[in-house]
């Protein structure tokens, strides 16, 4: 059965080298760790599953729950370091880890602040640029210093655009939030919507950096990594609880986005073969309209079967959805929602 695990001869750059380790995580979707486990069929590489606690909003806010979650993650990371040292036969370079983790945290802060700038009217940076730039933070690789500089340059550019009111989408008529995975194969689709004055000002929670917290007093780099990562979830718990919302991540952040980025509508992109990016979207649609009077347009597609995505169908509905967005703009005005 192992013969199926060969690298295809036509693979770019000779294909990926055989891994010495499959590092997966139990975060967000089950496929992450089950898939790597199933890869045992083709690869004899060991699998390590990193842990990330998935607490409910109320449970996450119970006394001691946050500290316990962090303790758990730190202990897990320490186990992981031990495992890596055993696997690779060398010691962890703690100074280097310190440096790398600080760069990543810092980079994410700059990237977060860049996205904050997109709250401006007109929005200075479009979703297409977001999708091009998010990889550096989400999958940091290569020269982190250079990457950090790229993010700083990006920040400066976006800031300049805000100060000079340079719009990403000329004639910004409608501001929209997009969820979840973009149609990678048809990003041009966003341009066609931009021609109609649709400006995508914010998007998929899971691809955005966590809300920055001050980690400068945290001595242990593992604890810094844990707090930084867990913030991705926990950063939304308190507000979520205040609003009586139960889905602290994947759900509630969209309410915050719609409010803070002043969105007129949401474009939801359910995928047939990615449950995790799909199963909450109807719920999100409902919360957005119930709580914020922000309507959603659903454009189903897939990341595997490209034929399932029909941009023409969505463009056809765009005209009707504009009337819907107009209608709810009036409703929000009447209800004093502020945008």
């Amino acid at each position: 059965m192992k013969d199926l695990g060969e690298i295809p001869p036509e693979a770019p750059m000779g294909g990926m080298p055989k891994p010495v380790l499959l590092m997966s995580a139990g975060s967000l979707c089950d496929a992450r760790y089950k898939w790597f486990q199933a890869l045992g069929r083709y690869l004899d590489a060991p699998v390590w599953v990193l842990e990330l606690p998935h607490l409910g909003v109320k449970e996450g806010l119970m006394e001691g729950a946050y500290d316990q979650a962090i303790r758990f993650m730190v202990e897990e990371l320490r186990e992981f370091v031990g495992f890596l040292e055993k696997l690779l036969g060398k010691k962890m370079d703690w100074d280097k880890l310190e440096d790398i983790s600080n760069d990543i945290i810092d980079m994410n802060r700059i990237w977060y602040e860049t996205n904050e700038l997109r709250k401006a009217r007109p929005c200075p940076m479009h979703s297409r640029d977001f999708w091009t730039c998010m990889t550096g933070c989400l999958y940091p690789a290569g020269d982190l210093k250079a990457l950090k500089k790229m993010y700083q340059d990006l920040y400066d550019e976006v800031k300049y655009r805000v100060e000079n009111k340079i719009a990403a989408c000329p004639n910004e008529k409608y501001r929209l939030v997009f969820a979840e995975l973009p149609p990678w194969h048809s990003l041009k689709f966003f341009d066609r919507l931009a021609e109609r004055g649709w400006s995508f000002v914010v998007e998929s929670w899971a691809y955005h950096p966590p809300k920055p917290i001050d980690l400068s007093q945290v001595k242990d780099p593992l604890e810094r990594i844990a707090k930084f990562t867990y913030q991705w979830f926990a950063g939304y718990f308190e507000e979520s609880e205040k609003q009586g919302e139960q889905m602290g991540y994947f759900g509630y952040p969209y309410l915050e986005y719609a409010r803070d980025w002043q969105c007129d509508g949401a474009l939801l992109h359910p995928l047939l073969s990615c449950r995790t990016a799909t199963n909450h979207l109807m719920y999100v649609q409902d919360r957005l309209i119930q709580k914020s009077n922000v309507p959603s347009l659903v454009a189903s597609g897939d990341i595997v079967d490209l034929t399932l995505f029909d941009p023409e169908d969505t463009l056809r509905r765009a005209e009707a959805f504009e009337e819907t967005m107009d209608h709810y703009k009036e409703v929000r005005k009447k209800e004093g929602l502020g945008w």
């Binding site: 309209i289 399932l308 009337e323 107009d326 709810y328």
Partner: peptide, 18 residues
């Protein structure tokens, strides 16, 4: 399903899964 206002404008709508 289409919700319409008195002028026939689209208030909201939902389309069945394909």
């Amino acid at each position: 399903i289409i919700r319409v206002d008195e002028k026939g404008k689209v208030v909201n709508f939902v389309v069945s899964e394909r």
